[in-house]
């Protein structure tokens, strides 16, 4: 297997696919950081502290990933690109603020785990700069899942909260599940073919389900998109994503980007004349 030390060494089709994916991940982590950070109003002071701490982790990861992207196009000046929110490639469930703490818990378990599963696929990546940064990010992600899990178990102890959680899980599931990539797309072929990630999108989805299935099982949550296979003792995906309207390079169904309020915060990052390093 080849090892690539810079974008220039990558075959062109892999270069494009990796660039797209890193930008999707960086924007998604940036937005997840913004969302986590909005929870000074978590229902416990400990949770507010955890939220702002996890927000920093996500920003830290976004900073690393944007740093990697800079070597692809020097003039990119990330995270700035354009004054258009539609250029943003974040996971669309992060376009607007979470409605309530249940949404936070869903993001903390499901959305965050999807990103982690994607990162894990780079552990043995042929793209060296990425491989070297993944272990640290994964180390930091462990706490995120533990935190989310703790709150899921707390929520399901109350019938009404459990029903609400199930409802939200069903809403987000198709989008998150699709976010891991469309099978047999050209970019997927490039990413797996050149050893940038160690499995294809369906492989990622399987890992994703295997990660969350046991938690849902333990919490006795009914999410019809996941079934428990009593013979193998594993969770399996019952419903594949509906790809109608899917945009693989943005990993979104529509290119709307974050809402205005969110975009104003992104704009603040560069619409100023302060002497930033």
């Amino acid at each position: 297997m080849n090892e690539y030390k810079s974008p220039k060494e990558l075959p062109p089709e892999a270069q494009g696919a990796l660039f797209d994916l890193l930008l999707v991940l960086a924007d998604s982590k940036h937005l997840l950081g913004l969302r986590y950070g909005e929870w000074l109003s978590a229902p416990a002071l400990e949770a507010s502290i955890a939220a702002v701490s996890m927000a920093q982790d996500e920003f830290g990861h976004a900073r690393l990933l944007y740093g990697l992207l800079e070597s692809f196009h020097q003039e990119l000046n990330l995270p700035r690109r354009t004054e258009e929110p539609s250029q943003y490639r974040n996971l669309e469930l992060l376009d607007r603020a979470f409605a309530d703490w249940t949404d936070f818990v869903v993001a903390n378990t499901v959305l965050d785990t999807a990103m982690t599963v994607q990162l894990e696929a780079f552990k043995e990546s042929s793209y060296l700069p990425l491989r070297q940064r993944v272990a640290k990010m994964l180390q930091e992600e462990r706490f995120h899942f533990q935190h989310g899990k703790g709150w899921v178990l707390r929520l399901v102890s109350a019938p009404k909260a459990k029903a609400e959680l199930e409802h939200r899980l069903r809403i987000v599931w198709p989008t998150v599940s699709a976010w891991l990539g469309k099978p047999s797309s050209r970019s997927e072929q490039a990413l797996t073919g050149f050893g940038i990630q160690d499995t294809d999108s369906d492989g990622l989805r399987t890992r994703f389900v295997e990660r969350l299935g046991p938690l849902f099982q333990q919490a006795n949550l009914s999410v019809p998109m996941i079934a428990w296979d009593a013979i193998t003792g594993q969770s399996v995906l019952t419903t594949p994503p509906d790809w109608t309207g899917w945009d693989e390079s943005f990993r979104r169904f529509s290119r709307t980007g974050p809402d205005r309020e969110t975009f104003a915060q992104i704009e603040a990052l560069y619409a100023h004349s302060y002497p930033v390093e």
Partner: peptide, 9 residues
């Protein structure tokens, strides 16, 4: 110590 080290600078 952390990717988000605030004291990097």
């Amino acid at each position: 110590t952390a990717t988000a080290c605030p004291a990097m600078e």
